[in-house]
Computed example of a mutant assay.
Amino acid sequence: MIVGLTGQTGAGKSTVSDYLRENGVVVIDADKIAREVVETGSACIADIALEFGCEYINMDGTLNRKKMARTVFNDKEKLKKLNNLMFPYIIDSIRRELKRLREQQEGIIVLDAPTLFESGADRECDRVVSVTADVQSRKERIIRRDKLTEEEADERIQAQHDEEYYKSRSWQVLENNGSIDELKNQTSVLLSKLEAEMEAGNSSEAQQ
């Protein structure tokens, strides 16, 4: 079973992902894949340089993330252009990794992807789970986590979709407006549901 895991920045998706991994679930980290596709000499880096200019590429050939972030978080059209360049490379890598894991007959595979819907990666998933939280909680968390100013935190939040966007597209939603332990408890219940669904699916296949 392929489970897409997504959510807003600061909502607590990483806590959920870490808990699942600690409990034996295989997790594909789309953020890690996104970093790999812009490594020095990659085709994606060449595309970004052509579209945005060489000033967005560091001397060692890697992406200047800070400069790019300042640009795209203030301009939705430029963010869309960057995503349109990167998503095909990311999806291709995700598909290769999913194929490899399927061949190993892993049970539940979680695809942890902040831009699961925007990239179209949700189409690779059997179930989608979103993590949401109220704006103030998210803002406080990303200021602490990323050492941002309030203005920078607001820009990141405004660049993302609201809660309803995620809720309307998800099989399950974990609302993280409380403690980490409360979120872990929700995740434990979620894992039990997923395991039960997978077991029911396997039983159904066996009977056919």
Rank of each mutant, 00 (worst) to 15 (best):
G4F: 05
G7I: 10
Q8S: 15
G12E: 10
S17L: 05
S17W: 07
S17M: 05
G24N: 06
G24V: 07
V25A: 10
V25P: 00
I28R: 04
D31N: 10
K32I: 12
K32G: 04
A34V: 05
S42H: 06
S42F: 02
S42T: 13
C44K: 04
A46S: 14
D47Y: 07
D47M: 04
C54Y: 14
I57W: 06
I57D: 02
I57P: 05
M59K: 15
M59A: 15
L63K: 04
L63E: 01
N64C: 07
A69V: 11
R70P: 08
R70Y: 14
T71M: 15
D75K: 10
N83S: 12
L85K: 04
M86W: 02
I94D: 06
I94T: 08
I94R: 03
R96F: 02
L98Q: 00
R100H: 09
L101H: 06
R102I: 03
Q104A: 01
I108R: 01
L111Q: 01
P114Y: 00
E118D: 15
S119L: 08
D122P: 01
D122L: 09
C125N: 04
C125L: 03
V135W: 06
R138M: 03
K139N: 03
R141P: 02
I143Y: 01
R144Y: 02
R144H: 04
T149R: 12
E150L: 14
E155M: 15
Q160H: 07
Y166C: 08
R169T: 09
Q172E: 09
Q172N: 06
L174I: 14
L174Y: 06
N176M: 03
S179R: 10
I180G: 05
E182A: 12
K184C: 10
N185Y: 02
V189M: 14
L190F: 10
K193M: 09
L194T: 01
G201R: 14
S204M: 05
E205L: 11
E205M: 08
Q207L: 11
Q208I: 01
